[in-house]
Simulated scan of single mutants.
Amino acid sequence: MTQIHYRVVQHDGGWAYKLGDVFSETFPTHDAALARARQVARQQHVPGNAGAMIEYQDAQGAWHTEYSAAGDRPEADVTG
């Protein structure tokens, strides 16, 4: 199973969570960014057997839409 790690970091005058080289929106406090990162990490574990259409932005800024099968959800955690 794939593992992904969100990190809470200072960014753009505030705080953001980061996955790889991609930053989230900026939050005014560390606690706000941490709470949102934990929520996003929990959402990686969608219950049920049905897959879903997902949308994501790659490192070059291009958006992609694809089907994600329910059995390929990553393990996610948050640091920072």
Rank of each mutant, 00 (worst) to 15 (best):
D58G: 11
Y67P: 01
V40E: 07
T26E: 03
W63N: 06
A16C: 11
A33G: 00
F23I: 10
A37T: 00
Q43G: 07
A70M: 08
D31G: 06
G14T: 15
A76D: 08
P47N: 01
A69K: 05
D72V: 14
P47Q: 03
G13M: 14
D21L: 09
G20R: 13
G13E: 13
V9L: 15
A35G: 08
W15F: 14
K18I: 13
S68R: 13
P74S: 12
Y17E: 05
R42L: 02
P47T: 00
Q39C: 00
Q43K: 05
Q44S: 04
Y67L: 03
Y17N: 04
T26P: 07
V40T: 04
E55P: 02
E55S: 10
Q57K: 15
G48M: 01
A76M: 12
R36T: 01
A50I: 14
Y67N: 03
G61F: 14
S68F: 09
A52P: 04
A62F: 10
Q60S: 14
G14F: 11
H64N: 07
G20S: 09
T65S: 13
G80R: 11
L19A: 09
Y56A: 01
T65C: 09
V46C: 00
A52K: 14
R38P: 01
Y17M: 11
A35E: 13
P28Q: 05
P74A: 14
V22P: 00
H30D: 02
D31L: 08
D58Y: 09
F23S: 04
A62L: 10
A37N: 04
I4P: 09
E25A: 14
R36A: 04
Q3K: 08
Q44D: 01
H30R: 10
D21C: 02
A33P: 02
A50T: 15
T79W: 15
Y6H: 15
D77I: 04
L19N: 11
R42E: 10
D77Y: 09
Y56V: 09
Y67G: 03
G61H: 11
A33M: 02
S24H: 00
A50F: 06
L19C: 12
Q44M: 07
Y56F: 15
Q10L: 15
A32H: 01
H11T: 14
D77Q: 10
R7N: 13
P74W: 13
G51C: 08
H64S: 06
A52C: 11
E75Y: 10
P74E: 11
R42T: 02
F23Y: 15
Q43S: 11
A37W: 01
G51S: 06
T65Q: 06
S68N: 06
A16E: 05
D12G: 15
D31M: 03
A59P: 04
A41P: 00
W15D: 05
P28E: 06
L34E: 08
E25R: 15
A50K: 14
H64Y: 09
Q3C: 05
G61P: 09
G51I: 12
